[in-house]
Design a protein around this nucleic acid. Structure first.
Lengths: 334, 334
DNA sequence: GTGAAAGCGCTAACAA
DNA sequence: TTGTTAGCGCTTTCAC
């Protein structure tokens, strides 16, 4: 059996309260006492039982991270970042995957996070402000990619990035551009709608009357991207350029184009979103999103509130930028 | 304040012991009583405090997952799979990243998992049998990609896959083949050494005297792959084919080759390892590893032991297979 | 089938 | 500065 606080107290010749104070670095402990306790703890290889601490203190020292899954690079990266920041502050992070509406409903009604985490960051899971508050049950919540005045939020400036991408394609001379959305047209996610409207309004304000454009929706996976582009290529007059809602989808789209014998970027320019490491290595032009920064912000905000900060909800927009690579070029004149 | 077991007991008109039994589905509870308790719990939106349960029962209902990081696709996927299996059995999963030797040392000596998880799966973190046992402290441990007779292990048949890949290149007519390893030549990881020796011995037994080959080591990232290939291409007589220890590294290598004006696969054939989804979309020939299966096995084994099973340590080798795609072709005759 | 009661190992007043 | 003493909210014998 592992040593308990009583063992340490006995060995150090002090009370358990003193051991608790000394080991947690609380003030009002004599230096000599603290050292004595520390030695005893080391000797016994003592580690406080997190469950007992949590029960007594009412804090679990863990943060919840709610994501739609680990399949997308961005979400895995967010976990890394949150683990890092939270870990430095002494918190564990408990990730949870909420992919389906059923899973979300279960979480909202059965409260598996109740008394299990001290605060949570929710990333790109379609939940509105009221739902986030319900999820939080009084604990600090920060959301990534969601629009909720009630809690801290950080979102990427997707609109700006897509507008840039659209302008880029127009300036290359494309007049027939398509947009492939990431499926989840759920209004609670800010990115999908922002991207779509940035695309259409940029084309509209470009003032080029003869620009042809179309918007299709598909699943946010490489398969989804492939399927959507297939549809577009089947049309009588396929687009010469396409903006795709994520790098994963863009890769799927590129593969379909190649397998149909298209020359990239000659026959088709492709733009993605995220700028995951792979994008660089396949030469994909993409809208860079600072995923690490978003995750760090959200995590830090939760930590701050856990530390007693009680400011009104903050909302940050993180800049995006278009990274031009080889997957975009002027359209081949037919 | 959330409802406690006492609230439920009072509302249902029974003792807390009965509530505890009823809600956990234990036997020896009258049907009527169970329903009454369930109704009270629902009404009060009651959820048992995990900390209190853990303290009282001595079980945390959470599994630890130790990985070198979330950056590689394979590890993110393993987390997904373990979350899935463990979740179905009522366990949370607490992932922990152990990248540096310092972090491993900290974990081994400070026991942050003590009383925090009931069992753990360790994936591709360089730890030997004794260290795994230390980490486990009596709890069930399953390891992925490690060689430890003391605990359950599951490894991919990397040797087989690399041998197949090598044979494939030889049969295409390559006589100058290089191997780029994943850096961690740590003997506690089985894959690196297995791959290297499979490569060299396959070439040796091929009996082709004039085959030129070299082995270099680099970091297990796209940057690492790029750097290693750069070195090889700088040599007077660069290889016509290269086997790279992961898909990420392979992508980096491909990018370097292209940026030097090489035609792929004409001037250089590339083979990766893992077969992550992206590999398909960039047409990368690669050694498929059934990551999901390995994770599921490891997780299930831990769960079984938690369930009381006490069989001797099991060791499974999961088959690999070469997936041929466009990144490999006969060498261009110079 | 159900209840009473004794902890699980720690933290946090409150005293001293 | 340190010790005493209640709990924190459950689970689990052991009676009944």
């Amino acid at each position: 059996m592992p040593a308990t606080i009583d063992d340490v107290a006995a060995l150090a010749g002090v009370s358990t309260a003193t051991v608790s104070r000394a080991l947690r670095g609380l003030p009002n402990v004599a230096v000599a006492t603290r050292e004595k306790v520390q030695r005893a703890a080391d000797l016994l290889d003592y580690v406080a039982d997190p469950a007992a601490s949590a029960l007594a203190a009412g804090r679990t020292a863990t943060l919840g991270l709610v994501v739609p899954g680990m399949g997308r690079w961005a979400h895995a990266r967010m976990l890394e970042v949150v683990q890092d920041r939270a870990g430095a502050a002494g918190y564990d992070v408990l990730p949870v995957t909420l992919a389906s509406a059923a899973a979300r409903e279960f979480f909202l009604t059965r409260h598996p996070f109740r008394r299990r985490v001290d605060g949570l960051v929710v990333a790109e899971v379609p939940l509105d402000g009221a739902e986030l508050l319900r999820l939080g049950e009084g604990r600090p919540v920060a959301a990534i990619g969601l629009d909720a005045p009630e809690v801290d939020t950080v979102v990427a400036d997707d609109a700006r990035g897509i507008a840039e991408a659209t302008t880029h394609l127009l300036s290359l001379g494309h007049v027939d551009i398509a947009f492939i959305g990431g499926g989840s047209s759920d209004a609670r996610l800010v990115a999908p709608a922002a991207r779509r409207s940035a695309f259409t309004s940029t084309l509209a304000t470009a003032g080029i009357e003869e620009v042809v454009h179309r918007v299709v929706e598909s699943q946010a996976s490489s398969t989804g991207g492939a399927a959507a582009l297939s549809l577009l290529l089947d049309e009588v007059d396929p687009p010469t350029a396409v903006i795709v809602a994520s790098d994963e989808m863009a890769l799927g789209a590129m593969e379909v184009a190649r397998s149909r014998g298209l020359d990239l970027p000659g026959d088709l320019s492709v733009v993605g979103v995220d700028d995951q490491p792979v994008a660089q290595f396949v030469g994909l032009t993409t809208v860079h999103r600072d995923v690490a920064r978003m995750a760090a912000r959200a995590c830090d905000w939760v930590l701050e509130r856990l530390d007693g900060s009680d400011v009104p909800a903050r909302h940050e927009v993180v800049a995006t930028s278009l990274v031009k690579r080889g997957s975009t070029a002027p359209p081949r004149t037919r």
